[in-house]
Design a protein around this nucleic acid. Structure first.
Lengths: 376, 376
DNA sequence: GAAGTGGTGGACAGCGTTGTCACCGAGGAG
DNA sequence: CTCCTCGGTGACAACGCTGTCCACCACTTC
């Protein structure tokens, strides 16, 4: 057993540094049955084609095609021979060649997002996959890591693969590169953020409304010094949420104070420092709105040991928010609803919907759990 | 603003029921610039081919190919004309046709897992994607939802698409269907669980060792009535962890009691009931080992309001475990390490590694945070 | 003037499929 | 016996691209 007992209480670790050199390796002797080829390995072997099957079965290639495609008009005995040959050779129809010849769709859609590893986007991915499954299509994903160049590479690569449609969480603001693709008939739907300079279907969440609501909610508990910790303002959602914050301040009649706003990019340290700064001095912040779930989590960690806590409302819901103490109030929106709405829009286009581009804004909900319901 | 203020404190909700019919829709009039085609839409248009480009540029198709592929020996002026034509027609090389002709790889690998939406697997996905990116390959994913039929469909579909390799989190125990594919030279690596009846590369985590360690850890704090809540025993990892639990009980000298084991499938209700049952009576459990992160979370929710809590160690780490009170002790293993190890193995095969199939067992780590360090 | 030489471009085949059309032999109608 | 139908089958081209090979046009060199 390679790991040892840890006697003490240690802080959170992601176990990212597990030492792979200490991994155990068993050889095949301890394993069972059914080796695919004595000594296995990826020897580069030409795959059997219909031609090979045809030769072996003593029929023409066309007959093989008929059998493979379940076309009528093949003598049962012939079909039998063909199937036996297929089995013997391990033949599997080459979909690329098929699609090429038929000029039909490739049965794939491309999904470009910021990071598949982020739970929010993996929820989106799952929803897209689910809808695509019903439509008989496969999903190819790629993570842009918020890099416009990478986004472009991915999207165009997908186009070269002739995806039937493209779902994109935009990383940048320039999407002119997609115009030829769209003109060529590839529908594109933008998710979570709009494209900068292209008119296309877009699915967003109500960033402004949600943040406004968060501020009003906090103000209704008597808070007048409400801070906002947001992501880098060149990210669409961050900027929108900042707008919502301003709007909320205005509507609550508490004024907008530059000094209460700290935009990112944020990491654990910067959030900690920002909170520290905001909460000292003569007129400290008594409440905080955090601009996304990463920032919320950083904030919670920074406040973990603190004697007093500001009231807190976070944008984005996250698992276990209800089990923390106090439970965290959030502006919730649903990754799978976002993915579903976008996929539905895409498939409507693929079904021939030629109406003008739509912009769908999904509602958000304030989920009050406790952290935001504290009197000033 | 479609949503309203929620005055009270409500319990956790996933916002899954957001009403899409209340979504706002803006028409394109409110949008900006650069419409791809006056009235857009996915009119099915034949995409420009090299032939079209050649005609327009007044050169042969081969010359276009040369330009597109940056081959030497094209007069700059000719290249210029070709590039202009490409631009005008929005031509983009068809990768399927190219790969078909060249007999080269499709530059894709297939990843079949249980659910992309699950944070653990999305971590795996991200790692696989990252490695694949370095190798210039795209990843196609599919979720089997623990259904062997679906897994098989996905894997074979991927093979039809001629993926260069396959990474599979097995849903069932029969994988003979992959033998022809493996024999045809498609390398397959199994992740997280072994295949039932095929010898192939496999990457696992140390399920037995981890659970044993959890039990010994709890026993070291004086617990002698340690319960185990595990997933359905036909799932490999669940069964292995049960084995580890037995082993731990044996080594701790506390005996194995059938009545302290409750295997799944589990949902929130069944976990709640199981815990309730285990903790009453004359000789109640004073400690619990939970068999995966879902079960751990269910257990935490069930215990949230309770007056007294059993000591708890969960298999699988999860975000925020350190911020709960008490912080949750876990057996941690790393999704991205798993994905990376599997991808590395796959690419080694693609690079020609013909050695016998390997089984890699990644170590796990006990991360003691508090919930498990409670005296009996 | 004949024979190389290097730079430029095209004709053609073929990757693995499928759509079109034509063929062949058996059987039924006239 | 001829004509026609019809089930079963195959030859062939083509999908979009690239590898091979060859043609052509200056030029240079003997």
């Amino acid at each position: 057993m390679p790991s040892r007992l840890c006697p003490g209480v240690v802080s959170f670790e992601t176990a990212r540094d597990i030492d792979i050199t200490r991994s155990r390796v068993c050889d095949s002797a301890t394993m069972t049955t059914l080796s695919p080829d004595g000594a296995a390995g990826a020897r580069k072997v030409r795959r059997a084609t219909m031609n090979d099957v045809a030769r072996l079965a003593g029929v023409s290639i066309k007959t093989v095609s008929r059998v493979v495609n379940d076309e009528a008009g093949v003598h049962p005995a012939t079909a039998e021979r063909v199937l036996a040959a297929i089995d013997q050779l391990g033949f599997r129809r080459n979909l690329s060649a098929r699609n090429l010849r038929r000029g039909s769709s490739t049965g794939t859609v491309g999904l470009v997002l910021e990071d598949v590893g982020n739970p929010f986007y993996s929820g989106v991915t799952r929803a897209v996959e689910e809808i695509s499954r019903l439509r008989g299509r496969q999903v190819i994903t790629g993570s842009s890591d918020e890099d416009p160049v990478r986004e472009r590479e991915l999207a165009l690569e997908f186009c070269s693969r002739r995806v039937d449609g493209l779902l994109i969480v935009p990383a940048g603001l320039q999407h002119g590169y997609l115009v030829p693709e769209m003109r060529a008939g590839t529908p594109v739907v933008f998710l979570d953020r709009p494209a900068g300079d292209v008119v296309a279907d877009t699915v967003l969440v109500d960033n402004v409304g949600g943040t406004t609501e968060a501020v009003l909610h906090l103000a209704s508990f008597g808070h007048r010094r409400i801070a906002f910790l947001g992501d880098a303002p060149d990210i669409f959602t961050a900027n929108e949420r900042l707008r919502g914050y301003r709007e909320g301040c205005a509507r609550a009649g508490i004024g907008f104070h530059e000094s209460l706003v700290v935009m990112g990019p944020h990491d654990e340290v910067s959030v900690r420092e920002a909170l520290h700064r905001l909460r000292r001095g003569a007129d400290p912040a008594t409440a905080v709105v955090t601009g996304n779930n990463r920032i919320t989590v950083h904030a919670l960690r920074a406040l973990a040991g603190a004697a007093s806590r500001p009231a807190l409302v976070g944008f984005d819901d996250f698992e276990l928010a209800d089990l923390l103490s106090p439970p965290v109030s959030v502006i919730a929106h649903d990754a799978s609803a976002l993915g579903k709405a976008a996929a539905d829009l895409l498939y409507a286009r693929l079904d021939g919907d030629g109406s003008p581009p739509r912009r769908v804004v999904l509602p958000v909900r304030l989920v009050a759990r406790g952290s935001g319901e504290v009197r000033a």
